[in-house]
Amino acid sequence: MTQTPGPAAAAIRDHAGEIDDLRRRLEGVRFTSALIDRGAPAPASMLAWISARLEPHVREQDRIVEFLAGNLSIAAARLRATAAAFEGEPDAPPMARVTATSYWAPEGESAPSVDFAAEAELAAQIQGLARTMAVEEWAEGSLAEPRRPAPLDTAAVAAVPHGVEKALEFQPDVLAAQVRAWRHMSAELQRIAQDLRHRLVHDMPEWTGEAHAAYCWLMEHNVNSAVALGGAAAGLAAAIEGVGIVTAATRELIRERTAALLHVLNTWAENDDQAPTTTQLVTAAVQWALTVASHLAALARSLRNLNTLLRS
């Protein structure tokens, strides 16, 4: 189809600049991911547990963001080469090349190609991840409900076995910062996808032909990839937040039960007329231990549920 070289070249160059801006925003997403403090938490802590389980997903997320940014970089370079060919610049590729569908084929291939089956599977997995990472989907019972911490009972905290209290550490400020960062990345990736689709629809009305159609077709898959990445980031945020919720809930429930036991023991100690029998003391201790064990078991089952989701 006949092109209008002047206006088309100018529009294509402007569009290439927009693609570069989107690429820089993707690199900003990568930078944000790199800044997330995944640090070196205590080996037995909940933060260490979730960090270890999410690390493969984080690496894959970073890899795909880098790959997508590379796609946009290649696209911007080929767009500028197309504009140069339209303007007849000496070092530009031949017009016959930049106006052919094959110009937008991957390196080493003769025609554009996209693995539709793989993309559909990825989209389904990402949508499932974002949906099922919500704490309500994997946590057991009351552990899925955020609890407002009660006033700190130092005696109750001190009475909780050290190993239990240590295992329930999760550095809420660090965890909250990670959740905010992943939510920010999710929102930015969704905005990038929307902006790229807008650019494809509204930019370059003067550019027509097979090459333009092939370019838009391939870039639409980059849009879909950005949407999927945004969903994955939202899923990671939900998983991290959920671990904080179930851990805090378990810790508060155990502290509450310990405080209740201490109250009973103190009442007995202060009342000489109602000294407890050995059976009463043993029963109170056993009830406390069974309740604590049930809360820890519910936490363990919840984390196994989450671990299964992360592996699927």
Rank of each mutant, 00 (worst) to 15 (best):
S225Q: 09
D272K: 08
N266T: 13
E145V: 14
W288P: 02
E220A: 06
H184K: 08
D273C: 04
A260L: 02
T277Q: 13
V164K: 05
V157E: 13
L200A: 05
M185F: 01
A193F: 04
L175D: 02
V201Q: 14
H162V: 07
T283L: 07
G244C: 11
T279K: 06
L200M: 11
D272Q: 06
P151R: 15
D195A: 09
V174E: 14
R148T: 14
R199Y: 08
V201A: 15
W217I: 00
A176N: 14
A144Q: 14
K166R: 15
P161V: 04
Q287P: 02
A239G: 11
A275L: 12
A249S: 11
A289V: 00
S186R: 09
E256Q: 15
R191F: 14
P146Q: 00
L218P: 01
A158P: 14
E220D: 10
S186V: 09
V223C: 09
W207D: 00
E270L: 11
H162L: 11
T267G: 15
V223T: 08
D173V: 06
D195K: 13
E206W: 11
M185C: 13
H263F: 01
G209H: 03
S186M: 12
W217F: 15
V201D: 14
W217M: 08
V157Y: 09
G244R: 14
E256F: 03
L261Q: 09
Q171G: 03
I254R: 03
D272M: 10
V243Q: 00
N266K: 10
A285H: 13
L175N: 12
A187V: 10
D195C: 02
H198E: 13
F170R: 04
D173K: 11
Q280E: 11
I192K: 03
H162Y: 09
N266L: 11
E256W: 04
G242E: 01
E145L: 13
V174N: 11
E206H: 14
A248W: 02
R255E: 14
L218M: 13
A234W: 04
L262A: 02
R255G: 02
T279A: 12
N271V: 07
I240V: 10
E241S: 05
A259Q: 06
L196F: 06
Q190E: 07
R191L: 15
A181S: 15
L175I: 03
L229D: 00
L265N: 05
A187E: 13
A238P: 07
A285S: 10
A181I: 05
A144W: 04
W268D: 10
Q287H: 11
E165R: 15
T208R: 15
A177Q: 14
E206D: 12
A211F: 05
L281K: 03
A144K: 15
G244T: 00
R257C: 05
V227K: 10
R251M: 03
T154Y: 05
C216Y: 04
T278S: 08
Q274N: 12
N266C: 04
A249C: 01
W182N: 07
A181L: 08
A213E: 13
W217Q: 10
L168K: 06
L143C: 03
L262F: 03
R255F: 01
A214Q: 02
H198K: 04
E169C: 04
Q171F: 14
D195P: 00
P149T: 01
G235V: 05
A237F: 05
S142C: 01
R257G: 08
E210Y: 00
L262D: 05
A226H: 08
R257N: 08
